[in-house]
Simulated assay, not measured.
Amino acid sequence: MKIKLKRAYEAPVREDGKRILVERLWPRGVTKGEAALDDWFKEIAPSPQLRKWYGHEPARWPEFQKRYRAELEANKDEVARLHSICKNGTVTFVYAAKDEERNSAAVLKAFLESI
């Protein structure tokens, strides 16, 4: 399984493989053509309540990871569907967060690689 992470504001390249948006909301200022997505997994993204609670506050990062993993464990169908796609070649999770280390796509990647 080869999963890459890339901000929605970075240009797509062939090496991205299958590009999947893993955000509940569409990234601001990005057109569908610019995003060049193959799929959009809205329902696998953190819940609106969790996203708002986290607010990209670094101090909340450890608890955010724990809560988001719990949401993923409860979302078995979408996790299984995405995991199946990831086993078939290179996949790039496209996300909108500014923080390239502490974001939901990073948690999702680690979660899928652990199962």
Rank of each mutant, 00 (worst) to 15 (best):
A35L: 04
E57F: 10
T92I: 03
C86W: 01
E63L: 14
Q65H: 08
G55S: 10
L82R: 00
R67L: 09
E71D: 07
I44R: 00
E101G: 06
D38R: 01
R51S: 11
V91Q: 01
Q49V: 10
F64E: 10
K98A: 14
Y95S: 07
Q65Y: 07
K52F: 10
R60I: 07
L72G: 03
L37T: 06
S47V: 05
G89D: 08
V91W: 00
N88S: 12
D39I: 00
E100R: 12
T90V: 08
R81F: 07
K87C: 12
T90R: 01
H56S: 12
S84F: 03
L72E: 04
V94P: 08
E73I: 04
F41P: 10
F93H: 09
F64K: 05
N88G: 15
Q49R: 08
A70Q: 13
P46S: 01
E78C: 03
P48N: 06
K98V: 15
H83N: 15
N75Q: 07
R67K: 12
S47E: 06
P46W: 01
L72A: 00
E71V: 03
V94K: 01
T92W: 02
F64V: 11
L50E: 09
F64T: 14
G33L: 05
K52A: 13
R69F: 06
P58C: 03
E78A: 05
S84P: 07
V91L: 00
Y95V: 06
A35I: 03
A97T: 15
E78F: 00
E73F: 03
H56A: 09
D77S: 07
E43G: 13
A35C: 04
P58H: 04
T90K: 02
L50N: 08
V79S: 01
Y95E: 09
W61L: 08
R81T: 13
P48E: 06
T90H: 01
R60K: 15
A74P: 11
K66T: 13
L82Y: 03
A70L: 08
V91R: 00
A96C: 09
G89N: 07
A80T: 05
A96G: 15
A97P: 14
E78D: 13
Y54P: 15
R60F: 10
E34K: 08
A97C: 11
A70I: 10
K42M: 03
Y54S: 12
G33K: 13
F41E: 12
K52G: 13
L50W: 11
I85P: 07
A97V: 10
K76C: 12
F64H: 09
L72P: 07
Q49P: 10
W40Y: 08
N88W: 04
N88T: 14
E57W: 11
Q65V: 14
A74K: 07
K32T: 14
R81Q: 13
P62F: 03
E63T: 14
Y95L: 03
G89Q: 05
